[in-house]
């Protein structure tokens, strides 16, 4: 592991992202826009928007980063740059740390923009701390990034990588408890939900939004970080220096 190589990689990834103006726009404009949509869909039930809007601030980054990273890493695989990197004095950890650093920065900016719009313009009202919600949003973005890096190993084209979004993310979104409280689901689904990382991400967000027990928020965040590390380790295992 070499910090400078990881930093160089992070800068390179950000540089590439900056060149892609449309993706940048999507990353920063879509989450606030969707929140605005929620706000006016629930125009007659502001309490529903307050209940759902807070956690959504932290869930959008998860979804966006999953897609952006899985496609970026897939490109790295299909254009041969990954193979080139694997012949160079760069450790897998440098590469993954570079990605994590770059996308953490993007996620932090995304969370800041989304929070500013949600709390400033849309009048979202939460009991808890906005900063904690934003911090959890960054954790969730990194979780999405790590899962995206791992998932990219199973896609052979960008088309497939994009299909992983509904396949990996939508079930977690349905089961996490945001739309329907988990205890009202079929028992089997409730149990499955505990095995899914987004469930814990959502619980942390919900507690943070409600101004709930800080220790439990920390526990939920720790689970998210733990799953992120496991996913990164799995992603590292899919990076092979030698291929058939």
């Amino acid at each position: 592991m070499n910090g400078r190589v990881a930093l160089a990689t992070a800068e390179r990834v950000l540089h590439q992202l900056r060149r892609d103006r449309r993706t940048v726009a999507l990353v920063f404009v879509v989450p606030p826009l969707l929140l605005a949509l929620f706000r006016y869909v629930f125009d007659g039930q502001p309490e529903t928007f307050d209940r759902v809007g807070g956690p959504l601030v932290g869930i959008f980054p998860f979804v966006m980063m999953f897609v952006v990273t899985s496609v970026t890493m897939l490109r790295e695989r299909t254009t041969g740059t990954l193979e080139r990197l694997m012949t160079l004095p760069l450790s897998k950890l440098d590469l993954l740390a570079g990605y994590a650093l770059a996308f953490a920065l993007v996620a932090a900016l995304q969370a800041a923009v989304t929070c500013a719009v949600a709390f400033g313009l849309l009048g979202l009202d939460v009991e808890g701390s906005v900063v904690v919600v934003a911090a959890l949003a960054v954790c969730n973005a990194l979780l999405g990034m790590a899962l995206g890096l791992f998932a990219s190993a199973f896609a052979q084209s960008e088309f497939q990588a994009v299909q992983f979004m509904p396949a990996f993310v939508l079930p977690q979104f349905l089961l996490c408890g945001l739309l329907v409280p988990r205890e009202r689901m079929a028992d089997a689904l409730e149990w499955v939900s505990y095995a899914l990382p987004l469930t814990w991400a959502y619980d942390g967000l919900r507690r943070a939004v409600e101004g709930g027990d800080a220790a439990l928020v920390a526990r939920d965040a720790a689970i998210v970080v733990g799953v992120t590390l496991v996913a990164l380790a799995l992603a590292a295992a899919t990076l092979r220096r030698r291929t058939p």
Partner: peptide
């Protein structure tokens, strides 16, 4: 150097 150029096309 591989047969297909392995560099970042957007840079």
């Amino acid at each position: 150097v591989t047969q297909a150029p392995s560099v970042y096309g957007d840079l």
